[in-house]
């Protein structure tokens, strides 16, 4: 297990460090931040921790069904490929800031990309 992506990135501790940087980037980016208007930060931070754990390849209980259900209201508000691209870009930026190797960033982006169709409900 020691060479899994999640462990290589630093496990739960890395998730906890990355989540603030990542969510701050999301909230400051006009391409995506309006999807988060009026949401509660504590709840979002927890959700984002779940998301980061998943894309880091860590132990999580995300299912395709959850992904679909969890984003349906955003798809209705116009969530599309360009927003998923932006999120993956911000994720990459977060990891780069934390000094993660480019090859690992690519692997994280690939996992994030693999749930694109579930998130966009197609």
């Amino acid at each position: 297990m020691s060479d899994s992506l999640f462990n290589r990135l630093g496990g739960q501790e890395a998730v906890d460090t990355a989540v603030d940087i990542f969510y701050r980037k999301v909230l400051s980016d006009d391409r995506v931040n309006y999807f988060f208007d009026g949401v509660d930060m504590d709840k979002q931070i927890n959700k984002q921790k779940g998301f980061l754990t998943m894309v880091f390849g860590g132990p999580n209980n995300y299912t395709g069904k959850d992904m679909r259900e969890g984003h349906k209201h955003l798809v209705a508000k116009g969530l599309n490929d360009s927003h998923v691209d932006a999120i993956i870009e911000l994720l990459g930026g977060t990891l780069a800031e934390l000094g993660v190797a480019e090859s690992d960033i690519q692997e994280v982006a690939a996992i994030a990309n693999s749930v694109r169709d579930d998130v966009l409900d197609r």
């Binding site: 989540v19 603030d20 969510y23 909230l27 949401v39 509660d40 930060m41």
Partner: peptide
């Protein structure tokens, strides 16, 4: 909610 987000964006850690 708004104040929490303000504090967070100003750089205070969520914890």
């Amino acid at each position: 909610k708004k104040l929490k987000t303000t504090a967070f964006l100003a750089g205070i850690a969520s914890k």
